[in-house]
Design a protein around this nucleic acid. Structure first.
Lengths: 150, 150
DNA sequence: TTTAATTACTTTAATATTAAACTATTTGAA
DNA sequence: TTCAAATAGTTTAATATTAAAGTAATTAAA
């Protein structure tokens, strides 16, 4: 257990920071999952409903960029949301390559019901940090996110 | 686009912080992916090889806890690593419910080759933060991770 | 010692996820 | 105008992921 790779101070600090970052993100995210699952949704499905609520009708490409998933993935998740009657999908008249994806009444009801609880869960979880600490964390994360390759 | 849910200041701050946290974690993580994929591994496979290098032989339960995945998932990923000849799996003599999972020579060579590059990629990515900022971020993330439900 | 509870792992069914190859449509350039 | 390139979405093949139900082995309790 001590023959393997050992890093410099810089590397140890970076790795430590990285693993804590992953765990923290995972941890807060997990706090929202039981709510979502209890309502028969997956995380991706919830993400799409949320985007549609905030942004109105979108095509699949726009959704893919919003929730950072591949086009093929969106096709499938949209399909599952359709099966559950939570969204509408209609071919655009002005560009027949695209579809307008929008919330159905049922979908709008559901996401409007879930979102306040979702926000509350996240807020409670983040409340272990003071307002100043939250601003600090946002700042540091923003800096890290800058290197995005998409 | 303005009929939907609007939160309190506290909620807005928490949501903003949360989304940035997710994006940052995703972003740094993605920086390591091409290395891993270019060597024919998935992220989970890499995680298991890494754990085995650091900790020596483990059973599947221990691996599941290490990489925070379900037991069923471990069964599958172990199976795929076996197909690639990267690990060994042998029934324990003292407890025939368990298996010892360990690195094969091929697996050890691979992870020993990849890990230094992996560490370098993460360190470079984290270098946008000063040492003090990294300590700050670790501290804040640790606080957030405390609420883990596992 | 026999049986009940626990533990380790597997299997199944459903969904997710991606890259890559593909179809259909639109746009733009010769 | 015509055809090449770009764009939107689908499909396929491979892997991941989980919860829940199932099998096998061990432990503990009656």
């Amino acid at each position: 257990m001590s023959t393997h790779y050992h890093g410099t101070k810089e590397e140890i600090s970076a790795l430590d920071c990285f693993i804590k970052l992953l765990r923290a993100a995972d941890s807060v995210n997990n706090a929202t999952m039981s709510q979502i699952q209890a309502n028969g949704l997956t995380e991706s499905q919830f993400g799409i409903l949320e985007a549609l609520l905030h942004l109105g009708s979108l095509n699949q490409n726009q959704l893919a960029q919003k929730i950072l998933k591949s086009g093929g993935n969106i096709t499938l998740v949209i399909d599952n949301l359709l099966k559950h009657g939570l969204i509408n999908k209609e071919k655009r008249k002005d560009d027949r390559r695209c579809y307008w994806i929008s919330l159905s009444d049922k979908g709008a009801d559901l996401i409007n019901k879930l979102l306040p609880i979702h926000v509350k869960l996240i807020t409670e979880r983040l409340a272990v940090l003071s307002p100043e600490e939250q601003i600090q964390l946002s700042f540091l994360c923003k800096k890290l996110g800058k290197g995005r390759s998409d």
